[in-house]
Design a binder for these strands. Structure first.
Lengths: 341, 341
DNA sequence: GTTAGCACTCAACTCGATGGAGTGCTAATA
DNA sequence: TATTAGCACTCCATCGAGTTGAGTGCTAAC
């Protein structure tokens, strides 16, 4: 037995209806709801088949049917076409704030949350290996040295270093030159002992400062290793009865607050650059087995990606979500492209 | 009618018991629970008095009594003495991470949440008026200028400025000197039109760059205006039945996520530097009318304060919370004092 | 002033009845 | 052969009645 045209239509009707109402949907509803002109009895037979095929399930005998994960999957795969409308105000809101990566992404998360009414996640850019682009030392006052380290992708890091002894202007200038000469273009793995030895040799009497500096640089680079994840609208999940159950909600909210376990979720399939939909068990995060997760990948520059996504109930307006993510992704791409020009 | 010794003891017993069980407490319980050797009938009479005085209330007739806000207030004011034990592991955990203000404070929030099982808030330092301490311009590449702005309290801000036309090394040097000469030591309000005019005059042909720079500086200073608030353990509130009610929990979690409205709460009474306890309506945040908030003020340096606090149910182990906050406050004070040496 | 006793109140729980939505099956129909 | 009408059945949700138990307030006695 395979899915024919009619079964597909009925399945679609069931899911559509369930998405709207959140209640199990019965045969009579479908009979009236669709333009198939079939009696409820016929629908019942078909639904029985669909259940056997695993696309829908009954919460209990004598209840209507609700879609299974497999049903949702089919729905998402086949019946969904993107819609690229509304959400225009996002654009304006975004452009206002496009100064700082952090606040931008946080803003994106919030906008998405407000627009979709789901919980949202946004990751910052992931770099494969971050290279040092530029280093600048300055004496802020007699006791403190400020190291500004610019990494590939214009990530700027600051470190305050306490000074044992005051350094002269000339010393600082010299350090700046030496550091930039030897470290520019290198990433963590390339700054090895031989480079360090050469550095210290060139720095002459300032070797001890170099050591501290290298520590700071190493820290700055590795700091970024755990990519930041921004979340917003976590409380939205309380709006959906099937998720606001005590235990489920508590786990989910904790997960969203902690964020750590989300990295796994968001790192899956990074080679695929379209929209990804994870339904129920597909998410790999245990506490989300009653949720669906939809993510999109945006591109900052060649080879550097971040992700935006939402977490909501399986009963989710997939069409709208995918559309929204699609437009948002496009807009983010544009912003970064523009910023580079 | 005033509170005599016995009424106080009974009130104390009621509150203690209620804190433990979360259930309204009846006269028989108190009769057995305390060492007063009074029958339940007598207790009933006393409880009747206490209710009349407004220290306790009945959720409904024929239910036990629970403390009113006024009752909690008395309890907190009179019967609480700090206890400075446990929480030693906090110390270790903190010292590990004392490198970066942000992560330190986030860590503090988390530790506090784990230790108390309540939702926690921590604010970063608040400066009355932030002055420019130091400005450094550098050309990262041909098209971008990096402005590093150091504010009072060693807050470092970075701004990337796109360049219309390439600047020579000499121009940048000149700009650096001019900027530092005229802006160092000034705060937002002091950078007025006359200062700006003088700046542009000195900068000669670079007036247009100056304008952009000033925008960036203004942004850097004002950016910090809304003090960062770190929260943790928000989901803890779901552990308390009286708060996990749908509407209440949703509002609370939203408030904790948004953080904005919390500033008001945390800015009250900043002149008082001890532990503050807000019960129910006292908090000024509407959604917290069923909560208590306990805050402590820590000192980073002379005149610069931040706050740590927890949000939990009115039925809260006040003694423990106050103790924990007290020790944490002390430890934070120590860390910052040490860091300065 | 304290206590024992008793009537009263109220929330929480149990239990059964009822109704409605929905199914599965069978027999009739096109 | 596919569709439909009809019917018996199942199960959840809801409602109301009855019960229980904790707790109170009052009164009279100690």
């Amino acid at each position: 037995m395979e899915l024919d045209e009619r079964k597909l239509k009925i399945l679609q009707a069931i899911i559509k209806n369930y998405l709207e109402t959140g209640e199990p949907v019965g045969s009579r509803t479908i009979s009236k709801f669709t333009d198939l002109n079939l009696s409820s009895a016929t629908i019942r037979n078909e639904m029985s088949d669909l259940e056997e095929l695993g696309y829908i399930v009954q919460p209990h005998t004598s209840a209507g049917r609700i879609p299974s994960d497999k049903g949702y999957r089919l729905y998402v795969d086949t019946m969904m076409q993107s819609r690229m409308q509304e959400v225009e105000q996002m654009w304006d809101a975004l452009n206002d704030k496009a100064d700082k990566m952090e606040s931008l992404l946080q803003q994106v998360a919030k906008l998405l949350a407000v627009n979709t009414n789901y919980a949202t996640l946004v990751t910052g850019p992931q770099y494969r290996s971050r290279k040092v682009k530029f280093i600048q030392l300055t004496d802020v006052d007699e006791t403190q040295l400020l190291a500004v380290i610019v990494l590939e992708g214009n990530i700027v890091k600051n470190k305050m270093l306490p000074l044992a002894a005051e350094l002269s202007k000339e010393d600082i200038l010299k350090l700046n030159i030496v550091l930039n000469t030897y470290l520019t273009g290198l990433d963590m793995s390339e700054i090895n002992l031989s480079v360090i030895a050469k550095l210290k040799e060139q720095a002459g009497g300032l070797g001890n400062v170099i050591s501290e500096l290298l520590d700071a640089i190493a820290q700055a680079i590795s700091e970024e290793e755990d990519i930041p994840i921004y979340t917003s609208g976590a409380t939205n999940i309380l709006k959906y009865p099937e998720l606001s159950d005590h235990h489920v909600a508590s786990d989910l909210l904790y997960e969203l607050e902690e964020k750590k376990s989300l990295t796994g979720l968001l790192n899956e399939n990074t080679e695929e650059h379209g929209i990804q939909v994870y339904i129920g068990q597909e998410t790999s995060v245990a506490s989300m087995k009653d949720c669906s997760v939809v993510t999109a990948t945006y591109e900052i520059e060649e080879g550097i990606y971040g992700r935006i996504g939402i977490v909501g109930p399986k009963r989710m307006d997939y069409e709208k979500v995918v559309g929204t993510l699609q437009t948002l992704k496009t807009q983010l791409d544009d912003i970064f492209k523009k910023n580079k020009e």
